[in-house]
Design a protein around this nucleic acid. Structure first.
Length: 491
RNA sequence: CGGGGUGUGGCGCAGUUGGUAGCGUGCUUGACUGGGGGUCAAGAGGCCGCGAGUUCGAGUCUCGCCACUCCGACCA
């Protein structure tokens, strides 16, 4: 099944696509631009969800749910917000179908036109702030720290599995605060959660930073982001956290009485990560043999494959294998024992390798005699034969080791592909031939960023937060600059 | 929305100057097999994207439509 798909070198885009489909993560659906997330892919997403959900709750947030449909009029209330999303909104205009006159199928019933058209949410700021108006009167009602898990629709022209689909799954947090400082603090707190999740669970190193005005969320004062580097040298925005200022409070007239008995506008944030993280996860670690998953997010962490000739042998092996499974499960490891007689061991090896299962154990007659088990790790493809004694802690340690190794590998890749440049020629050369993150001085103007984008397709991915100030000259205009920013071609 | 490509068993493809559809893989059954995608045998499976036209005859030629896909402009 896994044969015949291109290497990363040959065709990176095709490699990614084939990987997603052949590893059973997702497939294209009958609806253009919308995908079906298959059980194996969805299991990964569920683990992401569960982890993030806990992190949000541990930091004081609660979940709620707001409607899929948003009245059209809500959108026009915040000027830059409309502008940002208007071009990609799906609109509901009618609420009824009827049999077509020719008797073949159904048509829209023109008599069932909606008074006010509804937008399928591309994001929920408008409906949520319209709601918050009623929730907030006093400083005592603040802060509101709400998150929702939902689907959203953005009518994209070109789509790619997980990376950009017309409909996608995400979480969106929407918080309301009494002060500017508190809202900014919230924005950064979430950014830290995102970074921690990416690095510790996904094993993907990310840069934390702030977006340039060109890349800012429509309606935000500041957009913070985590930015990851993929194996083809392109950047991927993995999560965003927005400080919205009082923009939405003003647009939706959300005011509160402060302790000082003054009527003030509420300060807001919003933040989200989506199924796009799946794309980042896949591209960050996988190789030409298929998917590579970090143990912490792998739906199956360990697979056990029995090797046998006769069914009596299988019984003996199963006895040992099931004991191993039980011991591993006691340590919280998810184990699959694949004793299907309908597939050959070699076939199973390839299958699980392709699907990125971190550790494979094989137990055969020789192992029964010697009290051993063959342990294979997916990330390095190394195999070794270990004594059965303490196999549970050995495997647990191995999983931890794989998790760390994946992160370090991704980190050293990123380091190798981060280049500081000081001249325009150098800049163009690196963007064109090497790729990756390029650290360069920029004069701070949207015009310059736009010009650079036109000429090189590279954009400012982020203005890093934890970086030293350093004076220099803009690579494009030569004007003075106080800090290097990160340029890259991006997904 | 512009430019290219592709639509043929589940999947991947071949199909010559028009003559009634084939290969690989997968599927079913059986035997032998089993420590890296096994071998052999016997089977099942097709509105050739859709619609017109040319022709005695169209997977093949003509026209129209639809879908998918890749490359650009737009985007998490």
């Amino acid at each position: 099944m896994a044969k015949d798909f291109p290497t990363r070198e040959e065709n990176y885009a095709q490699w990614y696509n084939d990987l997603v489909i052949k590893a059973d993560l997702a497939e294209n659906s009958a609806v253009r631009g919308s995908m079906v997330i298959k059980p194996y892919g969805y299991a990964i997403w569920e683990k992401m969800q569960a982890t993030l959900d806990k992190m949000f709750k541990d930091s004081g947030h609660v979940n709620a749910y707001f409607p899929l449909f948003i009245p059209k009029s809500f959108f026009s209330k915040e000027a830059s917000h409309v502008e940002g999303f208007a071009k990609e909104c799906a609109v509901v205009t009618h609420y009824r179908l009827k049999n077509s006159p020719d008797g073949k199928g159904v048509v829209v019933d023109e008599d069932a036109k909606l008074e006010e058209e509804l937008i399928v949410r591309p994001t929920s700021e408008t409906i949520i702030w319209d709601t918050y108006r009623n929730w907030i009167q006093s400083y005592r009602d603040l802060p509101i720290l709400v998150n929702q898990w939902a689907n959203v629709v953005r009518w994209e022209m070109r789509t790619r599995l997980f990376l950009r689909t017309a409909e996608f799954l995400w979480q969106e947090g929407h918080t309301a605060h009494a002060t500017k400082e508190e809202a900014i603090e919230e924005t950064l707190k979430i950014l830290d959660i995102y970074a921690k999740f990416a690095e510790e669970w996904m094993a993907v190193p990310v840069l934390k930073g702030v977006k340039s005005p060109n890349e800012r969320f429509a309606g935000a004062v500041d957009t913070y982001c985590i930015e990851a580097l993929m194996q083809d040298g392109k950047a991927l925005q993995a999560g965003t956290s927005h400080f919205l200022g009082q923009n939405f409070a003003k647009a939706f007239d959300v005011k509160f009485l402060s302790k000082e008995n003054k009527l003030e506008y509420v300060w807001a944030t919003s933040w989200g990560v989506s199924t796009r993280l799946m794309g980042a996860l896949i591209m960050a670690h996988s190789d030409d043999n298929g998917l590579v998953l970090p143990p912490k997010l792998a739906p199956v962490q360990v697979v056990i494959v029995p090797i046998y000739r006769k069914l009596e042998q299988l019984e003996q092996i199963s006895e040992v294998a099931l004991k191993v499974k039980e011991k591993l499960e006691k340590l919280g490891i998810s184990v699959k024992y694949d004793d299907r007689d309908t597939f050959k061991p070699g076939w199973k090896f390839s299958e699980y390798e392709f699907k990125g299962v971190p550790v494979r154990l094989a137990i055969g007659p020789r192992d029964l005699e010697n009290n051993t088990v063959e342990v294979a790790r997916r990330d390095t493809l190394e195999k070794e034969v270990l004594q059965l004694e303490d196999i549970d802690t050995k495997v647990k340690n191995l999983l931890d080791q794989i998790q760390k190794k994946l992160y370090y590998k991704a980190q050293s890749f990123r380091d190798d592909n981060t280049t500081a440049v000081d001249t325009w020629d150098e800049f163009r050369d690196v963007i064109e031939n090497k790729g990756g993150f390029v650290l360069a001085h920029w004069d701070g103007t949207p015009e310059t960023e736009e010009k650079i984008k036109e000429e090189t397709k590279a954009t400012i991915r982020t203005i890093p937060l934890d970086t030293k100030k350093e004076s220099g000259k803009c690579i494009y205009t030569g004007k003075t600059s106080t800090q290097r920013v990160i340029f890259a071609r991006a997904y």
